[in-house]
Simulated scan of single mutants.
Amino acid sequence: MNQIIETILNHRSIRKFEDKPLSEEQIEKIIACAQSASTASYIQAYTIIGVTDKGKKEKLAELAGNQAYVAENSIFLVFCGDLHRLELAGKMEELDVTASLESTEKFMVALIDAALAAQNAAIAAESMGLGLCYIGGIRNNLSEVQKLLKTPERVIPLFGVAIGYPAKMTDKKPRLPMSNIYHENEYKQNEEQFVAELTEYNDVISSYYESRTKGKRKDRWTEQMANMLQQKSRMYMKEYVQANKFDLK
């Protein structure tokens, strides 16, 4: 097994970091790796905002649900879907690109491009001995995040990545069985097999939580997911996306 694969397979979320900054070289390498990710039709429909200002990080932590590790890290990267740059390209060439920019397809391209770039950045950071945690909580209140980061129309902050030197290593969470995730040639619709595999996985996850919390928690994966999905979350998103000229037509 090579070092890249070892780095990927060793991933776990880190939520406690040392009070230690990254060097400019480290940041530049992480961003360069993000930019080396695949991008649809060379569009590069994303922007990365590196937040190092203590006050801004503390406000983002508050907006993300008072998650301390959003503020206490070496750098907090915010990955944005960005069609603003493409709008400027249209203006520079005196062409009307509005209909294309306001299509569901370009919205999906922006999301996918940003996710690909973020995962490259994550692998690069972990290869340097750094730890990280993806933060979706910034979508709790995107209007306030947008004001804080001064993002224009056609730019949507999607998620953050807290990066730093791990102060505490966490256990690696067991993933779903590969047969639940990987299907060859077509989607296997054997629900009985799915349920059987998920039942086994539930036992694995329950044991993981019970061991990690010394018996204080032993919920099953399906229990955790169903309870979470029963609660409505960020239901304002469609209106917010459309207000920022991602009209999903």
Rank of each mutant, 00 (worst) to 15 (best):
E62K: 14
K91Q: 15
D203W: 00
T7L: 00
L86D: 02
S13I: 06
V78C: 10
N190D: 15
G160L: 08
K91N: 11
V155Q: 06
A125P: 13
T98W: 02
Q146S: 15
K29S: 09
F79K: 04
S179Q: 10
V70T: 11
E62R: 06
L83W: 09
E200K: 14
L142Q: 14
E126L: 05
L176A: 04
M1R: 03
M237S: 09
I138G: 04
K147E: 15
V97H: 07
E25R: 04
V161T: 09
S211K: 15
L132F: 10
S36M: 07
D203K: 15
Y208F: 15
Y165G: 05
E6W: 00
E25L: 00
V161Y: 05
E126D: 07
G215H: 03
L22P: 08
K91E: 14
E153C: 01
L198C: 01
E239M: 09
Q3G: 00
I123D: 08
R15Y: 12
A125M: 04
L149F: 04
I48Q: 02
I205D: 09
V78D: 10
Q224I: 13
Y134P: 01
L63D: 05
E62Q: 15
L176W: 05
A196G: 07
E210R: 10
G129Y: 11
A68Y: 01
K238W: 01
F246D: 01
Q146G: 03
L132K: 14
K188H: 08
M228D: 09
Q224S: 13
E223P: 06
Y46T: 05
K232P: 13
G215N: 11
S13T: 15
I123Q: 00
S13A: 11
L101H: 02
V204R: 14
T170E: 15
I27Y: 00
L77Q: 00
E87G: 02
D96R: 08
L86E: 11
G160N: 00
Q230N: 14
I49C: 13
E72H: 11
T104L: 13
L148M: 10
K54L: 10
L142C: 15
V109G: 11
V70A: 10
N73Q: 02
V195A: 12
E62P: 05
I135T: 07
A162Q: 06
G90D: 12
D53K: 09
L149A: 09
A64H: 09
K249H: 01
Y165H: 13
A64G: 11
Q224N: 11
L83F: 12
K29D: 02
A99Q: 06
E197V: 02
G131K: 10
Q224A: 08
Q119V: 04
V78Q: 08
G131F: 03
A34H: 04
S74K: 01
N190P: 04
A61Y: 05
E192Y: 00
T104K: 11
P152H: 12
G81Y: 04
K147Y: 11
V241M: 13
E6I: 00
Y69L: 12
D82C: 09
N2W: 02
E197M: 10
N185H: 05
I30Y: 07
G215R: 01
R217Y: 12
G65T: 03
N227H: 10
A124F: 09
R85I: 03
T170A: 13
P177W: 07
L198F: 13
K147C: 07
A110V: 06
H84R: 12
